[in-house]
């Protein structure tokens, strides 16, 4: 190889590498990290990116060089030199990538071990997923856990989430926390998160779980320690989180994922609108409270025009208590104002 070719090849490589680095730096690839685990994931990400940019630059430089330098004129019918291989070169491009991927594997394995380690005394919170809502169980007094529809976490405290699913597979993800795990019916999965930034985030369901999948979200708040204590006290004292407030149940049971209901500010169209249930009950010739209650626990009993049977989960008689159902029916009929 002539020296000129080597220089040209290196120039192409530097150009391709620079272009790739610019894309890597100027595009916001990752959300702002808000947990220790995400910090480590971000480190692994950039470690891998640097290696990948190097490989990309080499491949791009060779392709560019070949296309520009070795392109034959249209009327040329000569063959290239009959080079069949080069054992040394073949060993190099088998061994070097093997070393690089081993390096990435080692870094990844170390990070994985750290990200799975919740320390000695993590805060334990249960997460229950169902179509199409999340609920969270905090350890309460005695056996009775405190159940809420939003996740409030104290900052800088390792949390071990234990995930369950009531119906199909869901997946718990807060992009800023990095960590993700499926919630699988029948088994228990866990996830470690150590939030580092006070703020509001969102739980995103990332496993296709049915028609309301896109709407299956829950609010996450990372707060200072005193505020977290206050939240727990309020929850224990009954407040909005005890589980017999219609509006709270509407949110935590995920009704808004599929139904429009003006008092709750939801506008989804997967299922029929709940804005004028009294009229629907009248049309069906039934007593409104009984009509609404039956529509929740046995949704296929009567199907609104333009909608299909078999879409709404039939699990609410199991997942909601009688008191909660009453509260929800009352909220749906009276819109919170009553």
């Amino acid at each position: 190889m002539r020296r000129g070719s080597i220089v040209r090849l290196i120039v192409y490589g530097v150009l391709a590498g620079t272009a790739a680095s610019l894309v890597a730096v100027f595009v916001p690839w990752l959300p702002d990290s808000a947990s220790e685990e995400m910090d480590r994931i971000v480190f692994t990400f950039w470690f891998t990116t640097v290696i990948c940019i190097g490989i990309f630059a080499i491949v791009a430089a060779v392709i560019m060089y070949c296309v520009l330098k070795f392109r034959a004129p249209e009327d040329d019918d000569a063959d290239g030199p009959p080079i069949h291989g080069h054992t040394g070169l073949e060993i190099v491009w088998t061994a070097v990538p093997a070393v690089l991927v081993t390096a990435i594997s080692v870094v990844s394995a170390v990070v994985l071990a750290k990200n799975d380690d919740a320390g000695d005394n993590p805060l334990r919170i249960g997460v229950t997923a169902q179509q199409f809502a999340w609920s969270f169980e905090y350890p309460g007094e005695g056996d009775q856990p405190l159940t809420t529809g939003r996740l409030v976490l104290p900052v800088d405290q390792a949390v071990k989430l234990t995930l369950h699913a009531n119906d199909v597979i869901h997946s718990f993800w807060v992009p800023e926390f990095g960590q993700k795990s499926d919630a699988v019916p029948g088994i228990e999965t866990t996830l470690v998160i150590t939030p580092t930034k006070v703020g509001s985030y969102s739980v995103v369901c990332t496993e296709l779980c049915g028609l309301g999948h896109a709407a299956m979200r829950a609010a996450v708040e990372v707060v200072e320690r005193p505020e977290y204590e206050r939240f727990l006290e309020e929850a224990a004292a009954g407040g909005a989180t005890q589980g017999t407030d219609g509006e709270e149940i509407f949110t935590s049971a995920g009704c808004g994922g599929c139904h429009a209901f003006e008092p709750a500010g939801t506008d989804a169209q997967v299922g029929p609108s709940l804005d004028d249930l009294a009229a629907s009950a009248e049309a069906a010739g039934e007593e409104p409270a009984e009509f609404v209650r039956q529509s929740i626990i046995d949704p296929d009993a009567r199907i609104a025009e333009g909608f299909q049977a078999g879409v709404m989960p039939k699990t609410y008689d199991r997942t909601l208590t009688d008191e909660q159902l009453d509260a929800l029916v009352q909220y749906l009929l009276e819109g919170g104002g009553g």
């Binding site: 990752l30 995400m38 480590r40 994931i41 692994t44 990400f45 891998t48 290696i51 990948c52 490989i55 990309f56 491949v59 791009a60 392709i63 991927v101 990435i104 594997s105 870094v107 990844s108 394995a109 990070v111 994985l112 990200n115 997946s171 993800w173 992009p175 990095g178 960590q179 993700k180 795990s181 990332t206 496993e207």
Partner: peptide, 25 residues
């Protein structure tokens, strides 16, 4: 060749368990 190399490189990210945990699904 060029697109497959990009796909192969993003595959390395997904093979790394911690990155995959963030990127999966």
């Amino acid at each position: 060749v060029s697109m497959f190399v990009l796909g192969g490189l993003s595959g390395i990210f997904l093979a790394s368990v911690p990155i995959d945990i963030a990127a999966s699904d």
